[in-house]
């Protein structure tokens, strides 16, 4: 089962990379109010149901993929009704 995880810096957490990109976009003439940079992880997960896949991937997120102090994550399962 194909699962995508979106990891983002939590709201209120300073994101200097996003700030630098925002500045650069403005230099190029784009009107950008804000930019935040996160990470996307595509996973191929062995699971028989979307529910099982979600539970498994949420465990992966809390143990490794995201650091809960500064990052939030969202799990999207291909073909599953959100």
């Amino acid at each position: 089962m194909r699962v995508t995880v979106f990891i983002r810096p939590k709201a209120g957490i300073l994101d200097p990379e996003g700030e630098a990109v925002r500045g650069s976009l403005r230099t190029l003439g784009f009107s950008v109010g804000g930019a935040r940079i996160g990470r996307l992880v595509d996973l191929e997960v062995d699971a028989s149901t979307p529910h099982e896949a979600r539970t498994e991937v949420e465990r992966m997120c809390s143990q490794l993929l995201a650091n809960p102090l500064i990052e939030s994550f969202e799990v999207e399962i291909e073909g599953a009704a959100e």
Binding site: I13, P16, E17, A20, N67, L69, I70
Partner: peptide
């Protein structure tokens, strides 16, 4: 810090 043996986390430096 990542192992949870110390509190907090190290982030990218403020001024990149």
């Amino acid at each position: 810090c990542e192992a949870g043996l110390l509190p907090g986390v190290l982030r990218r430096n403020r001024d990149l």
